[in-house]
């Protein structure tokens, strides 16, 4: 996620023109986990899917270079305006007749951040799902996952494939694509589907507006020369806190 966001002219989403584009952080763990299962079981076929503008293909190329076998780009110039229910419907419509044993999603997206899509897809497909996993083991269709709870607690959950898992930060260490794998990825299949072929249903919610939150901080902001800031901080520590006494 870039630090500079501007709201678009419509006032309902951010302007993506000047933004560097990268994979949703949580999805990197999902891709890595799928590739690790493939490495483990040998005979496996991994599809990576992304809904969005043409630019998302760049992100998918990274997933292919990490080891996915094929990419599916669901072409949708208006994906930003879709709600979690619509995004999940599109994914479920694609996955319904494919017989995937495992589906990994991120636990949340960084822009929409609803933390819904994964669980919704599973419910739509009638699959068991475990959300927010930080550990995953697969043994002949038997899944043992650890769900992260608050305060450093984890719940151990067992289920059977086919199933869907939503991936939390720290689940694994996403690999960096190597140069040979980046070259190989260029030859992999990258299918494009039009969103209209997958989406029948409408949105359940709408965005009234998007905006930059009002600053309520009111704290002191120090800028400029580093040495001067350091001097000011020492002064503040002396005056406002008891710690340098």
């Amino acid at each position: 996620m870039e630090s500079k966001f501007k709201v678009n002219t419509e006032g309902k989403w951010y302007d993506n023109v000047d933004l560097a584009w990268r994979m949703n952080e949580y999805d990197e763990f999902a891709v890595e986990q799928a590739v690790q299962v493939k490495d483990q079981v040998g005979e496996a076929d991994v599809t990576v899917l992304s809904i969005g503008i043409d630019k998302v293909k760049e992100t998918m190329k990274k997933a292919l270079a990490m080891g996915c076998d094929r990419g599916v780009h669901v072409n949708d110039d208006a994906s930003y305006a879709k709600d979690p229910f619509e995004i999940a419907s599109i994914i479920a419509a694609f996955a319904r007749d494919k017989g995937f044993d495992l589906i990994f999603t991120g636990m949340q997206s960084q822009d929409r951040g609803s933390a819904q899509v994964g669980v919704l897809v599973a419910e739509m497909l009638g699959l068991p799902s475990v959300s927010t996993i930080v550990d995953f083991a697969f043994d002949n269709g038997q899944i043992t996952a650890k769900r992260e709870l608050e305060g450093g607690l984890r719940a151990i959950i067992k289920t059977q494939a086919p199933a869907l898992l939503t991936c939390q930060l720290g689940l694994n260490t996403p690999r960096y694509p190597t140069l040979p794998n980046i070259m190989k990825a260029k030859k992999k299949e990258l299918l494009t589907l039009e969103v209209a072929t997958l989406l029948q249903d409408g949105a359940r919610q709408e965005t009234v507006k998007m905006y930059v939150p009002e600053k309520k901080g009111g704290g002191l902001v120090l800028e400029g020369d580093v040495g001067a800031i350091a001097d000011q901080l020492v002064q503040i520590l002396k005056e406002k806190t008891g710690v340098l006494a």
Binding site: F5, T207, V208, V212, P213
Partner: peptide
Amino acid sequence: NTFVVPACNAKLRRDLQSKT
């Protein structure tokens, strides 16, 4: 009936309304 939620790692906010 307007709900405020964060977006883009809390850099932005959205006002949402339900249609159901």
